[in-house]
Design a protein around this nucleic acid. Structure first.
Lengths: 189, 189
DNA sequence: GTCTATAGATCGATAGAC
DNA sequence: GTCTATCGATCTATAGAC
């Protein structure tokens, strides 16, 4: 039975967006309070560990979302071209054609107190490992290398799209990436 | 004649390293004061505009450094394989195999007040444009597309290397990138 | 030019009324 | 659970002695 009052989980999407847009350090509690509509008292009721716990909860929800919407579907299809196309479509929608920051990537660059290292590495390891398995199943040579390449291009595409304010760049890179993977598949038949 | 007392320019490398490691928001003036060995009074003497002016000065020095050490050499050589190899070697050394954050890329992800947009976009435009010219001179098809791809892979490689604490990943990606570009060159002969 | 001292604002976090 | 009030710490920036 759903509760009427706000739950901790309900705040996570807003928190995620704030962290993405302002970064961990730039996301102050007053900013968070304003965005969520919750006073600091309520925030600390939900997250006794403060901002660090908020970010951890957000990262865990992101990981779960990717598990459900990206990783699992990747291994559902037997056709790698199909699986990759589906993944890149989901990725483009999720990252809004590279205009939306990847919070995990952002924390990979700046996490000076090493608060989130394990969550950050687990996210990328999960993604690369799943892609590796997909490519191995499809009989690709250098499966893990290709998997690494895919995630690198997504992250780099976000950086450049944000830098140049050019979502067409991200779309172009994802399209080229897809074509390259499909071309590789045909070469192995 | 070189002056004995510290100049504004002398602080830039230290400032750059602090911004890279802690991010713009995470780099507090007390941290900067400790790292440079200069009191706040001295810092504001050199940079009346405060932290924003420090970051701007650092970005300008980075752009000049890339102009001299990356962009110009790219067009000095007629052989694209040679030019790319040289560039990627310099890039690997500069970014310490991806363990050192690209400050410009970091600011591309998080610059919520849009303080550094023009410097950030100019840096990446310069890099992509120079690579485009190199590839065009060498007779590549889709020169600008390949140029974009190169910078994307460098930035993405840094993100993943930082995330996984694995500099071998960056080295591997740069090596593969080089091979792919050389293979493309042979195809056009 | 460099320092110390400090202003004034904002930070993360807590206390306690309701 | 949510709020307001407020704590002490830290922030950016300034003032003024040297």
């Amino acid at each position: 039975m759903p509760r009427i009052v706000a739950e901790r989980t309900d705040t996570l999407p807003t928190l995620a967006e704030i962290f993405r847009e302002y970064g961990y350090n730039g996301a102050s509690l007053s900013l968070i309070s304003k965005a969520t509509g919750l006073g600091k008292g309520s925030l600390y009721h939900f997250f006794p560990g403060g901002k660090a716990e908020m970010a951890t909860a957000v990262l865990e929800e992101i990981e779960a979302w990717f598990q459900t919407n990206i990783f699992t579907p990747l291994l559902d299809t037997s056709d790698p071209a199909c699986a990759i196309t589906e993944m890149l479509d989901t990725v483009m929608a999720y990252f809004q054609s590279g205009q939306r920051v990847c919070l995990v990537g952002s924390l990979a660059l700046n996490d000076p107190e090493d608060r989130f290292v394990s969550l950050v590495s687990r996210y990328f390891e999960g993604w690369i490992n799943t892609l590796t398995q997909l490519f191995e199943n499809a009989g690709y040579v250098d499966a893990s290398d290709l998997a690494e390449q895919v995630v690198v291009e997504i992250q780099g595409g976000i950086v450049l799209t944000r830098a140049l304010h050019n979502p067409a760049l991200f779309q172009r890179r994802m399209e080229k990436l897809k074509q390259r993977i499909i071309a590789l598949a045909e070469r192995q038949d």
